[in-house]
Design a protein around this nucleic acid. Structure first.
Lengths: 102, 102
DNA sequence: CATAATAGGTTTGTAGTAGAAACTAGTTTT
DNA sequence: AAAACTAGTTTCTACTACAAACCTATTATG
């Protein structure tokens, strides 16, 4: 704590990361280094559309990268967390700790 | 990990508590045992309407109690966290830890 | 005395968002 | 030929955070 208007901690919470589904995605990606669409779909139990939307948001904010390839003629999409993503994820939790009970 | 469909951790996150402003309110109430409207208003930097709305939601879910009294003829409102509120707050954080980086 | 400020709201309106469901398109299995 | 799989996009609905305006009563202030 330093000066001026303190304690408005809630304003430091990144809303993109704060959404539970996206927290779960980031958690998984922070462990796995590469994960595909299918895996997230079944692991998280989402609809395809919903998952794709969350993925888009995470990609748009450059927290993850998307790799699309063909395996034979079947599309295969996989995701990785970026360095920025890792940093922001850490930063998010650092801020959240201030709201946690001691 | 035990069986069936695991890893849908995001479904365990209580949306009422998850909202940053309400997290901040619960954090403050978990420390202070009684806090008034004015204090929350200036500390959190919200509009009166917005604060009142969050308070209503926390009261409706019985996470906090509201005490309204008159000091002379001036209204004074203060809030406390309930036992249930304390428990749910702890439970929320227990669930959240599963989404935190290790 | 009028007006502004304080205390603590409620009501209203807007903008953003999560999520489901439907639709798309190519491939592959039955 | 039809159904199922991969990985989506589009559309639609329902909810919600937040600001701003409005409200009621009381107490300073010029």
């Amino acid at each position: 704590m330093d000066s001026g208007k303190i304690n408005q901690i809630h304003n430091n919470i990144d809303r993109v990361i704060h959404e539970p589904v996206r927290l779960a995605i980031l958690k998984i990606l922070s462990l796995a280094k590469e994960v595909d669409f299918k895996f997230l779909l079944t692991t998280l139990g989402l609809t395809k559309g919903n998952l794709a939307t969350h993925i888009n948001k995470l990609e748009a904010t450059k927290l993850i990268t998307v790799k699309k390839e063909f395996r034979g003629k079947i599309p295969h999409t996989s995701y990785s967390i970026t360095n920025k993503g890792r940093e922001q994820f850490q930063e998010y939790w650092k801020n959240m700790q201030e709201l946690a009970p001691e």
